[in-house]
């Protein structure tokens, strides 16, 4: 059951080197304060799984040498351009990319959520994605004739990591309508969450809040990290920091610039 960690670093202890780490897309509550803490800790050989895409979070972890592989339908800084450290690492052969498509990631997590070994998905046939995913299978639909369909094995992540508006003392986490966070937590062996604040009542006891609440049953650690999604948005709470994201895109375009970004915004230690 969930415990409220005394520090961000303590909450991140379950994210061990070599683990499979599940993270959400850019506007779904990305734990950026936690991501910077992982870089500072020198996390290694992470196998990132992005649900279904990632941006600055994956780029930062890849640039800092924390990542061994990434499974994603896309890695991009969106309006701020390509993800430069991701692209450089792929060209240099430094990381393994498991290319996929958004609904395949969702389906493979739903398989894990249900405890079944795979789910089928339409589309995909004739895409080179299938060619480079030896773990995917094309079978004939057993309920029809000559109807090929792709089977996707369940993705079984070690840890899901995300940022949410609030949690309560029991470790229940309010995620609102961002339901893929629920699927992520159900699919992962354990979940680590950072939140803006603690809610002073049990979230499950309020019927309105309960509908958007992930039960603490699935959560291992919660840490309080105000503005924990910065420089990304926490929708409904704060907007993304566009000037900062533009600065990241500019600096991360070169290895030297990226090192400077780390010095300025990740390694810097002023008052906590």
């Amino acid at each position: 059951m969930a415990t409220i960690a005394g520090s961000l670093e303590e909450a991140l202890a379950p994210i061990t080197d070599g683990c499979t780490l599940l993270v959400p897309r850019g506007n779904a509550g990305v734990a950026m304060a936690a991501t910077r803490a992982l870089v500072r800790r020198g996390a290694k050989r992470l196998n990132l799984v992005a649900v279904p895409t990632s941006g600055i979070q994956a780029d930062l972890l890849i640039g800092a040498g924390c990542v061994e592989s990434i499974e994603a339908a896309g890695v991009s800084l969106g309006e701020f351009g390509p993800a430069p450290r991701f692209a450089a690492a792929v060209r240099a052969g430094e990381i393994l990319v498991k290319d996929t498509t958004c609904p395949a990631l969702h389906a493979a997590l739903q398989a894990s959520e249900k405890g079944v070994p795979f789910l089928p998905l339409r589309g995909l046939i004739g895409s080179d994605l299938v060619k480079y995913r030896p773990d995917w299978r094309v079978i004939d639909n057993p309920f029809a004739d000559h109807d090929p369909i792709v089977l996707l094995p369940a993705i079984k992540p070690d840890i899901a990591l995300f940022h949410a508006p609030m949690a309560d003392a029991a470790g229940n986490v309010w995620i609102g309508a961002t339901r893929e966070l629920m699927t992520m937590a159900h699919a992962a062996r354990a979940t680590v969450v950072t939140v803006e604040k603690l809610h002073d009542q049990n979230l499950l006891e309020d019927p309105v809040l309960a509908a958007g609440t992930l039960a603490g049953f699935y959560v291992e650690k919660v840490a309080i990290a105000p503005r924990g999604a910065w420089p990304l948005a926490l929708p409904g709470h704060y907007a993304r920091d566009e000037a900062h994201l533009a600065e990241y895109a500019r600096l991360a375009a070169s290895a030297e610039g990226f090192a400077r970004y780390l010095d300025l915004h990740v390694h810097e230690r002023r008052a906590a």
């Binding site: 896309g74 993800a83 692209a87 290319d99 996929t100 589309g123």
Partner: peptide, 15 residues
Amino acid sequence: VRFSGSFGSAYLYFV
């Protein structure tokens, strides 16, 4: 050259 990735194309293009 490495681009961002296939996003939802490998499914939506079919359906």
